[in-house]
Amino acid sequence: MSPVPLIETAALCKEFRGGIRALSNVDLKVRQGEVVVILGPSGSGKSTLIRCVNGLEEITSGAVMVGGRRVDGAGPGRWRQTRLEIGMVFQNYALFPHLDVMRNITLAPCRAGLMTRAEAEEEALRLLGIVGLTEKARAPVASLSGGQQQRVAICRALAMKPKGMLFDEPTSALDPEMVGEVLATMRRLADDGMTMICVTHEMGFAREVADRVIFMDRGEIVEEGTPAEFFSAPRTERARQFLDLIMRHDA
């Protein structure tokens, strides 16, 4: 483990227009290779937190560091550099609908000058092979199922060869039978040592894959610990209530 966390936020605060406080004083450190799952009720600031990490939300105060380097307040160039290093997967996949699967994956690496077209296509095929979609390389995005689209979106982010990945509820928009294939892809990524921050409601994934679980409520980190600690013996009342509700829903 390297001593400098790959992703770090310090006293991070985010207020939306109208004074709605989405995050207050969030301190988060994610080590290289660590898989962190963020849990919490809706509106607790989970998504906002990871969107602040790659600058999709402008922070109100505090600091965001990636690879030990301060990112916020240094202009769009620094954010762009950071986004090249940290991939992101969205709830609604956000694939480019006018391009086929291959072009979706190769567009950014080619344009960022990371690799030639041929190298990017080779890399795309390798990634598609891993997620089991090799035969879809030339398919239009509209012809894919939600689960397939999300796996392509993961490939698209991975093609940039990021040091870390952010997942913003990647399975929340999927039909139940497609959740498994996306989680399997994420699990494999975690096994390969990728640094990941996942916002999700998949408790099974959190329990089995996460190195650390963070529980947020009303813009604050309420509790954090290993999945074993968190799920079997939550320390705070709010976490207990949350888990109670989830378990009842599952049953």
């Binding site: 790659n54 600058g55 999709l56 762009r80 550099q81 986004r83 090249l84 991939g87 992101m88 969205f90 609604n92 956000a94 694939l95 480019f96 567009l107 950014a108 344009r111 960022a112 979106a153 698209r156 982010a157 940039m160």
Partner: peptide, 15 residues
């Protein structure tokens, strides 16, 4: 054009 595509493009480092 869906706003999400803009975020996706930016998150991929596209100018």
């Amino acid at each position: 054009v869906p706003h999400g595509l803009r975020e996706a493009a930016f998150s991929l480092g596209l100018k």
